[in-house]
Nucleic acid binder design. Structure first.
Lengths: 138, 138
DNA sequence: AAGATTAGTTGTACGCATGTAAGTATTTCC
DNA sequence: GGAAATACTTACATGCGTACAACTAATCTT
């Protein structure tokens, strides 16, 4: 392993530690909303835009029966609703309810709040990080 | 939200996307080793150094019965062994076997390999990222 | 030495994630 | 118009993660 790969490995290790260990909020948000993280993931997705069960399943990388089960659960909680899809009467559009929107907002608030050390970074470091992360996502 | 917080939020979002979505290897490593990610986490920890069940449970943030279950499973696979703890005969030391070490190495190889975009970064960006990530971990 | 504490195990229970099979309604393809 | 494909649902099975109660063995406290 050359020096370059060594540094990259160290950086990758650090990034994983930050996101998966040091500042993981998945348990916190699950407890706050009283549902599994997978339910929350589906809820946030539906809050962003209505989905058919099929497109939701694709996004979540789950099978159709499990998508049905998750939407059933969210609907039972009053957070989403199934409506007819005018474009294809086989499928149904799942969209967010006001209560669901509030719950999704709360989840996003918890998940998206940057960790304190990130806010404490010198402005030039934060700017550099922003630029580099965006490059990595390209 | 001021500009600073806005940038930090965007960065945090990007970091989460990189680690949790774009380059998540947890499923891959689970399939490669034929065991759940939690088993692999315990295996890697024991490979790094022997642990009592108690210290393993503490590290994993699980309760004692589940620690017993995980170690039972790893032992059944021939990856770890329980030995007497000379310092305290109530407890047992769980240490890695040669086969377990090989499995842990394989898991680490998969998990620690930096994503391609990280390796493709200009050297000065990689160095800056290394410095900033280490600062975030302080 | 007796009682309290600690380490580990066993059993039991429940929710969640995942997969498979089978069925209905609707649409698409020929 | 009939066959095939698609969207969704229902039912069932299994492994995993989490929690709690009860138990044994060893150690610590006083």
């Amino acid at each position: 392993m050359d020096d370059r790969t060594g540094t990259a490995t160290e950086v990758w290790h650090g990034l994983r530690a930050l996101v998966l260990e040091r500042h993981d909020r998945r348990k916190q948000v699950s407890e706050a909303l009283g549902m599994s993280f997978n339910r929350i993931k589906a809820l946030r997705r539906i809050a962003a835009q209505p989905h058919t069960l099929r497109s939701l399943a694709e996004y979540m990388v789950i099978d159709a029966p499990y998508a049905t089960l998750i939407v059933d659960d969210l609907a039972k909680r009053g957070l989403v609703e199934r409506t007819a899809n005018p474009a294809d009467r086989r499928s149904k559009l799942v969209h967010i309810t006001p209560r669901g929107k509030a719950a999704a907002d709360e989840a996003n608030r918890i998940l998206d709040t940057p960790p304190e050390p990130l806010l404490a970074l010198p402005p030039e470091d934060l700017a550099a990080l922003d630029r580099i992360v965006n490059r990595l996502l390209d």
